[in-house]
Design a protein around this nucleic acid. Sequence first.
DNA 1: AAGTGATATTTGCAAATGCATTTAAATCTG
DNA 2: CAGATTTAAATGCATTTGCAAATATCACTT
Lengths: 157, 157
Amino acid sequence: MNDEIPTPAQRLGEIGLTNFAPYLMNRIMGRYNASLRADLSEMGLTTPKMRALAVLSVIDGPLIRELAVYTVTDPSTLSRALDQLQADGLVRRETDAADSRATRVFITDPGRALFEEMWPHMAMAQARMFRGIPEEERRAFVGTLQKMLANIRKHEI
Amino acid sequence: MNDEIPTPAQRLGEIGLTNFAPYLMNRIMGRYNASLRADLSEMGLTTPKMRALAVLSVIDGPLIRELAVYTVTDPSTLSRALDQLQADGLVRRETDAADSRATRVFITDPGRALFEEMWPHMAMAQARMFRGIPEEERRAFVGTLQKMLANIRKHEI
DNA sequence: AAGTGATATTTGCAAATGCATTTAAATCTG
DNA sequence: CAGATTTAAATGCATTTGCAAATATCACTT
């Protein structure tokens, strides 16, 4: 049997850093996330807490396991972030009716109110990213992202 | 004066998570980075070390400050990652000729050899991301990313 | 040219992270 | 249906991270 990893067709030097999509995406998201963190740390929000609130504003009562996928956060890290959000009355945990191992998370009214404060920062950071890019190009870009997400998705979520 | 943040035109719920580009990009890069870390941790590589080697394989002798931007790594974290790479003989630090505050970093032959081992994993993870996406669509996607990077770039790098 | 402020890197340290383990409950298997 | 296996979430703990401060050097000002 052959354990060798196949040699890629091209080298990174040939492609060039600025044509290598993962490099560009890490650069862009690095700054997006850093800028958001700087904006929102004064509200006492870390990246996991901010993401949890954002997802919960849209998806009602997911399992913690699902929320971990949506927020791209390790379950243990998310567990601790939820502790803090719960202590501040921003979310509420509730044991799942059908499976008592599992816990669902719900955003509270104060949580929703805080998200309303966060959202302009998120929307603005996104608008800055897309500045000068025509609507049609943006739509095509998001369409490609959706295909990519489907490709890399391990679970059904 | 008006300190209010302008209300965004749309709410996140209206856009939908899966149409919000930063959400999709974080999901995709989260998995790309996690998968790469899992592959490369057995080589003793962390994300900052891996990124430093990858960038240094293409850009020769950048300042540490520049490398921090390219690798999307905090300078203090990068400094410690370079300590480790240097201890393993994979990179070499050299004081800049014109500015003795500044340090340039060079990849060594063993470092380049290690990068050659890493690269197939990176190339494969990228190929997986783009599976089933036609060449022209990929090119358009990368073109949009380049515009976005120009938008969010703070410095001239 | 001395003094002031800015810049490049490193170090100290508290907080955050993520892996491994634990606990509890569900599901599978013979 | 008892025992073994899997799954969900939380916790212990060592490592990593990133902000703030320290150090060293440079650039600018008068």
